[in-house]
Amino acid sequence: MALAELLVVEDDAEIADELSQALASHGYQVVRAGNGRQAAERAQHRPPDLVLLDLGLPDIDGVDLCRRLRALLPVETVIVVLTARTREFEVVVALDAGADDYLTKPFRLTELLARLRAHLRRRATTAGPPVIRVGATTVDTHTRRVHIGDTEVRLRPKEFDLLATLAGSAGAVVGRSRLMAEVWDDEWLETSKTLDVHVSALRRKLADADDGQNRITTVRGKGYRYEAHP
């Protein structure tokens, strides 16, 4: 039985073949699209559980397609972008466009599989702690909504999980290894830049909703601390 239906959006046929075969061998039901138009059509016709999206497509900018897929797909569908773009701001743009995660090429299949398993586990988890309140911040883990005062903050799934972990230990330093284990997967390397990119995006969204107030402090060499501002 397939673990989940996964849409691979990749214009390089050789890469798509190898990736599809590897994923299928691990139980995924794989559907392929060689360009942005096909991806949008297939996503609309039959929404997948997960999307692997190469940003370097021939017919449409990958970030624009990511934004379109996010509008078409259910909120629980996970979008993981595959990119050769290594500059942080380009990855942040993709996350803001609706991606839940990213991998920089070249990547190891074992890491990709670990991330997919983590996303599927997160989708399947329905229980959670009570509503978390820290100062003006309210994190409702049941509705997965965040407010600062009366302002709702729109977060992507991983950003929400990251905030819930930090706010749940407000005032204390939360180590990088714990964040990687609880928000992602304990098979990942603690040195992954993924955590830093997500913290950067989360920090910016919180500040935009709160007159520029920085609520997440970096504790060098340790991790991050969520501050209980009024």
Rank of each mutant, 00 (worst) to 15 (best):
P106C: 02
L55Y: 00
D101R: 06
P130C: 07
A43N: 08
T138K: 11
T77I: 03
G36M: 06
R46P: 07
H45C: 15
D100V: 02
N35W: 03
A40G: 09
R123Q: 15
L113F: 05
N35A: 03
R115Y: 01
A118K: 08
E88N: 10
L23V: 07
C66R: 06
D49P: 02
G135K: 02
G34I: 09
Y102D: 02
F89C: 14
T143G: 00
V134T: 07
T137W: 11
Q29V: 13
E41P: 15
V91K: 13
E111Y: 14
E41T: 13
V93R: 14
G128Q: 02
Y102S: 00
G34D: 10
A97H: 06
A71N: 06
K105W: 03
R122V: 07
I132Q: 13
G62V: 03
L82I: 12
A39H: 08
G56I: 08
V30Y: 04
T110Y: 09
L95D: 07
Y28E: 00
R144Q: 14
V30L: 04
V30K: 04
T138L: 12
L23I: 02
L65S: 09
L52V: 12
F107M: 00
L112P: 01
L103I: 09
E76M: 12
R37C: 14
R115W: 00
I132W: 04
L53C: 02
A97G: 02
L65F: 08
T86N: 10
L72M: 11
T83V: 00
I60A: 11
T125N: 12
V31E: 14
G34N: 09
V91R: 13
L69T: 02
L53P: 05
R68E: 15
P58F: 07
D140E: 07
V91L: 14
N35F: 04
T137S: 13
Y28Q: 04
V63K: 11
L112M: 03
A33S: 06
V134A: 00
T126V: 15
A24S: 11
F107W: 00
A94M: 00
A118Q: 01
I79K: 08
A71P: 01
E76Q: 13
V30T: 08
E41Y: 07
L57W: 05
A33D: 09
V139E: 01
L72S: 06
E41W: 03
A84P: 00
I60G: 06
P129D: 03
V78P: 06
L72Q: 12
L50H: 05
R117Q: 11
T110S: 15
S25Y: 14
Q44M: 14
R42G: 01
V134F: 01
V139S: 06
V51Q: 00
G128F: 04
V78S: 14
V134P: 00
R144F: 08
I79S: 05
I132N: 09
V81G: 01
G98E: 10
A84L: 09
A24E: 11
N35G: 08
R133H: 13
P74F: 06
G135D: 02
F89S: 15
A94C: 04
D101V: 07
E88T: 15
D101L: 10
V134C: 04
A84K: 01
E111L: 15
E90D: 11
R70Q: 02
L65V: 05
D64C: 12
R108W: 04
L53G: 00
